[in-house]
């Protein structure tokens, strides 16, 4: 297990090469090429802004201005998370010939999927920065911004853990792929990305006399804490107050990653046969 983890570190050259390959290959043959890395999140932002400012004007959460920026803070990390998981889950099956015909470290494949999507996320950050400069009433404080890499790190750990777990499981149960896309849709709407946490935290009956159901559910949703962290750091004024939750999530992510890696390792021998 630990030896394998160390080996994973040794494979970073391979991960790097494959991530670069993925990025190069992704927009090969398209006219805009690499520009799509910026254009995609921009278009996504426009679509959501249009929907919530024009089509569903009445449903838009009040007193969140500018709404587009708020949306963007949660949407970008979510895109990384959801496409990372989708691709990681499918990575072993899609690269079956590598697993079956070449001596290849299987864990590299889901890791590459998650990291490649992280790179896309990072490449879209300039758009976010531009949006901040143009739309934000006040620039975010530096003391808050130092938390940003930590949030990214926690999300990476969490996504890697889930990705490894899903990849190993998808080899044995192909229908995870279809299940996952629907679960992710539900998860998206169950996370304060298009609406603020405050809009749901007070809803629902009290659970065990402690807190309303809405808050309990949000507290149990790991991505809610990530989204809130991004929003607090980039969107809201005031000091970053969610850091305790973030640290707990980081610890949880480490545990999840270790467990998922062990699980992956356990099933490793079956991949070449089942893919």
């Amino acid at each position: 297990m630990w030896a394998n983890l160390v080996r994973l570190l040794r494979h970073r050259g391979l991960v790097q090469t494959l991530v670069v390959r993925d990025l190069k290959a992704r927009y090969r043959g398209s006219v805009l090429g690499f520009f799509w890395s910026f254009a995609n999140p921009l278009l996504l932002l426009l679509v959501y802004t249009f929907v919530f400012s024009v089509v569903l004007d009445g449903f838009r959460p009040v007193d969140i201005e500018p709404y587009a920026l708020f949306l963007f803070c949660g949407l970008l990390p979510w895109t990384w998370f959801s496409s990372g998981l989708t691709e990681a889950g499918n990575s072993l099956v899609a690269n079956g010939n590598l697993i079956k015909k070449v001596l290849f470290p299987a864990e590299v494949l889901p890791v590459v999927a998650v990291v490649a999507n992280m790179v896309h996320f990072l490449l879209a950050l300039p758009i976010l920065v531009a949006a901040l400069i143009l739309l934000a009433p006040a620039a975010p404080r530096l003391s808050e911004l130092v938390w940003f890499p930590i949030v990214v790190g926690v999300q990476l750990l969490l996504t890697l853990g889930l990705g490894l777990f899903l990849a190993a499981l998808t080899v044995h149960f192909r229908d995870i792929k279809d299940l996952l896309s629907n679960v992710l849709t539900l998860w998206f709407f169950a996370t304060p990305i298009i609406y603020p946490m405050a809009a749901v935290a007070g809803r629902g009956p009290e659970v065990a006399g402690l807190a309303p159901l809405g808050k309990v559910l949000m507290d149990l949703n790991p991505f809610a804490h990530l989204a809130i962290s991004y929003q607090e750091i980039l969107f809201y004024d005031g000091p970053f107050g969610h850091w305790k939750w973030l640290l707990v999530l980081g610890a949880g992510g480490a545990v999840l990653f270790t467990a998922a890696y062990a699980f992956f390792d356990r099933l490793r021998d079956s991949f070449a046969e089942e893919v």
Binding site: G13, K24, A25, R28, N97, V102, F104
Partner: peptide, 20 residues
């Protein structure tokens, strides 16, 4: 196995070599 169809032979040599 492991060649990516979209990228060039040159890049594939490097990727494939690293894989091996």
């Amino acid at each position: 196995a492991g060649f990516h169809p979209e990228i060039s032979g040159r890049e594939n040599i490097f990727v494939n070599g690293v894989m091996l």
